[in-house]
Amino acid sequence: MIIAEKKPLPEVLGMLEGSSEVLVLGCRSCTAICLVGGEREAMETCEALALHSEIKDKGWKVRSLTVERACEREFLTPLNGFKGTVVSMACGVGAQVVQEHCPDARVVPGVNTSNMGAPEGTGTFVERCAGCGDCILHLTAGICPIARCAKSLLNGPCGGSQNGRCEVSPDTPCAWDQIVKALERQGRLDLLDANIPPRDWRPSRNGGPRRIVNAEASPGDAQRRWREGE
């Protein structure tokens, strides 16, 4: 899932200058799971903004709304025609889709979108995937060296791996130490005999925003014509 962190309240308050109607938009998907942008957090931000407005006499009309997924427009119909300020508690994807859905509104981020990760115990989330576009998990025992090695080494570990920890931080496990141990456990150490060649970064971020088309679901000419009522 997408991991995010809450923005400090003063930063959000600074974005709201000149606003009159403020909608705090929560999302029940990723940011709700990582405890920063769900219904509870949206209500908390809403109350904090309303309290600030009352204390500082800003006159903001603040309310909160939480949708199933802010990144899909079919869930955004309650926002149709909204022209005020939206404080998005969804990830950066959701915030942009909300802005596209409400072109006359001012969408401001209530969270900092960080990475694609997974929970590591309650309340702790760790990056697991860098979205590089060319997955090699079959070669690395299901542990991603791109996201989990500080140097994104394809053939590791490096000299900075000490007692299974990364030199970057003693709190960070060395991804390649984990990979070697996992391959040993699985009886597949032979995979380490072959060097993984330098990767092709073109499917990654190098070509601008990536577009993935599902050949079955994406409408063809006939379907498009029918949808457009021709």
Binding site: P10, E44, A48, L51, H52, K56
Partner: peptide, 8 residues
């Protein structure tokens, strides 16, 4: 912290 940030 939130209450202080809000202005109290």
């Amino acid at each position: 912290r939130t209450v202080q940030d809000a202005g109290l």
